[in-house]
Simulated assay, not measured.
Amino acid sequence: MPVSLSVLDLIPVRSGQTSADAVAATVALARRADALGYTRYWLAEHHNMPSVASTTPPVLLGLLAGRTERIRLGSGGVMLPNHSPFVVAEQFAALEAAAPGRVDLGIGRAPGSDPVITALLRQSGHTSDVDEFPTHVRDIEALLAPEGAGLRLSTGEQYVVRSTPAAGGAPELWLLGSSDYSATLAARLGLPYVFANHFAGQGVERALDLYRSGFQPNERYSAPRTFLTANVVAADSAEQAEALALPQLQHMARLRTGVPLTALDTLEQAATTPMTEPQRELIAGMRPRWFIGEGGEVAERLQAFADRHGVDEIMISPSAAASAGDPIDATPARERTLELLAAALPQRALAAA
């Protein structure tokens, strides 16, 4: 069967855009993914980045729930150490009530920002201890169950806690990561798992092997469930795709060499932006791990990637940049990536619809 396709969105903010423009572009992209039969649409959590507007996945997912019809919506992910587990459970229980059967809760252990912002996020004292991450994942799973969770008070009395008064169902819980730790923990807890291949790029074989070989079956999941992420730019020609990928590649190179970040460049800006030798080397190292090219060729490579790792779903991070003349509240090249891939892999896309 052709690989199933999903979308991971960081809500990129490009030069000249406001946050409102970027969010409007994401709404349009999510609606297009919904219409094309994509399986999921996930939003990442990042903070204080000039090029990323996906700061609060639960709030933004509520917006998308009202503007889409069938696609699953989720976090990729909520960075749990920044939040109270009970608040996370309440937020996603509310989303499940608003869009029954369509909500995924992806949880990660990384902070999603620099140390200063991490300190700001945690200064209220209501966030979770990163050392208690496994326990808090289990707590959220229990709190999201329709029957709720039971707490034993110091008096010995049993106290019932529910994330919503009368749940009809629960979000699907996924553990996210890019390390042996997350793969091993997902296996031990018997949870679905996603390896963040789009930014890790290495270690996927080992992580999937650890997850699959160590998976502990349970009442909800009798076998491991997993998929992979990938940076993707598909266009009508290979030359066009390379140009569309350049701004994001340059942006990542600047990030990894400690250059202060700005909004994403347009194609025209990227074409005239000088890069240092270390930045050029980083781009050369990243480029082979990205899926960039003409739509049909990219689809073939994604299918081969899925087959090689034994997964039936790929979550693409559509990384095509914008031209200066594009509408300020839309991302035509990102939409075109979704259209070309859905056209090249129609059986699975139609089945998902």
Rank of each mutant, 00 (worst) to 15 (best):
F92D: 01
F227N: 14
F215P: 05
A98Q: 05
M286A: 09
A166W: 02
D139L: 13
A344G: 08
M286T: 04
A321T: 12
A342R: 08
N82T: 05
A166H: 11
I117K: 00
L191V: 00
R289C: 10
R122S: 11
H136W: 04
L175K: 02
R254C: 02
D307Q: 07
G66Q: 11
L267C: 06
I283R: 03
G295N: 06
P57Q: 10
F199C: 01
G177K: 01
S178L: 08
D114L: 13
A343V: 07
Q158P: 06
L73W: 13
S54R: 11
A24S: 14
L345F: 11
T68D: 10
S113T: 15
A322S: 14
E205G: 14
F133N: 11
A351Y: 04
N48A: 15
L5M: 10
T56G: 08
G150M: 09
A207E: 04
R287E: 05
V27N: 07
D326T: 04
Q279N: 09
E172I: 06
Q347A: 13
E90L: 02
R206N: 08
P2C: 02
A263Q: 15
M1P: 01
P111E: 10
L345A: 03
R109T: 01
L282Q: 09
R301A: 07
Q91G: 05
R32A: 15
T266C: 03
L267Q: 04
D139E: 14
D21I: 08
S19Q: 13
L105G: 03
G293V: 06
D307T: 10
A324L: 14
L143A: 12
A22G: 05
D180R: 14
G76D: 04
P224R: 09
D139R: 15
V103N: 03
P12G: 04
R212A: 05
S128L: 02
A94D: 13
A149D: 10
G295M: 12
F133W: 08
G106F: 05
E219N: 12
A324M: 12
R102A: 01
Q91W: 12
L244A: 06
L249P: 03
